[in-house]
Amino acid sequence: MNDFIIEDDLEIMNGDFCIDEASQQNLTHILLSQKGSFKEYPILGVGLTRYINSPDSTARLRLENEIDKQLIYDNFNVRTLDVNDLKNIKIDGNY
């Protein structure tokens, strides 16, 4: 998926917005954002930090379910999802 590239700010090249492959960037934004962060899509967002800091042992299962649900909502086809290591979540799929 091609989209605007955002590092610390919008990337600009030759006086125009830089457009490039942005699938990984989109996944990162969805995982880190809370519900309500995207005004046009208020139910989009996983809120990953909430799950990482949770002492609940079922948090990992809820996190996997929430990631899957949110990515499907964003039209991402999830092939595999591995949340066994919360510091290194593996997602395979495509838009």
Score class of each variant (00 low, 15 high):
19 I>C: 09
13 M>S: 14
79 R>C: 05
17 F>V: 14
7 E>F: 03
69 K>D: 08
34 Q>N: 15
71 L>N: 01
20 D>A: 15
29 H>Q: 15
17 F>W: 13
8 D>Q: 14
16 D>M: 12
23 S>C: 06
61 L>R: 09
77 N>C: 14
72 I>C: 02
38 F>R: 08
51 Y>A: 06
55 P>D: 02
46 V>L: 05
69 K>C: 12
63 L>K: 03
42 P>N: 07
30 I>E: 04
72 I>T: 06
25 Q>S: 04
81 L>F: 09
7 E>T: 13
26 N>M: 15
1 M>I: 07
65 N>G: 02
72 I>K: 10
8 D>L: 09
39 K>E: 01
72 I>W: 01
26 N>K: 15
14 N>M: 02
75 N>E: 04
12 I>K: 10
12 I>N: 09
4 F>K: 02
64 E>M: 08
46 V>H: 03
54 S>W: 01
57 S>L: 15
85 D>C: 00
25 Q>G: 02
76 F>S: 10
74 D>F: 13
66 E>M: 11
57 S>F: 12
26 N>A: 15
73 Y>M: 13
25 Q>D: 03
70 Q>S: 08
31 L>I: 13
30 I>F: 05
38 F>N: 14
5 I>L: 02
40 E>H: 06
88 N>C: 06
47 G>T: 02
91 I>G: 00
68 D>Q: 08
60 R>S: 08
13 M>C: 07
4 F>P: 01
83 V>M: 00
34 Q>E: 15
76 F>Y: 15
88 N>H: 10
26 N>I: 15
82 D>C: 00
10 L>K: 04
91 I>H: 00
56 D>L: 13
8 D>M: 03
45 G>I: 05
86 L>E: 10
78 V>W: 01
16 D>S: 10
22 A>N: 05
65 N>P: 00
47 G>M: 09
33 S>K: 06
82 D>R: 05
88 N>V: 05
71 L>V: 01
5 I>M: 00
24 Q>I: 07
13 M>H: 08
22 A>W: 06
43 I>S: 05
41 Y>G: 04
40 E>I: 09
4 F>Y: 13
54 S>Q: 02
67 I>D: 04
46 V>R: 02
61 L>F: 07
62 R>N: 09
68 D>C: 08
27 L>Y: 08
89 I>E: 11
70 Q>D: 09
81 L>G: 12
80 T>G: 01
36 G>H: 03
68 D>Y: 12
52 I>K: 05
27 L>N: 09
92 D>A: 09
83 V>L: 00
14 N>V: 00
70 Q>K: 14
55 P>I: 08
12 I>G: 11
81 L>V: 12
42 P>S: 07
79 R>L: 10
82 D>F: 01
13 M>Q: 13
34 Q>R: 06
14 N>L: 04
18 C>I: 07
94 N>E: 15
59 A>L: 11
72 I>M: 00
52 I>E: 03
85 D>N: 10
10 L>M: 11
30 I>S: 04
1 M>W: 00
73 Y>D: 09
84 N>A: 10
63 L>F: 03
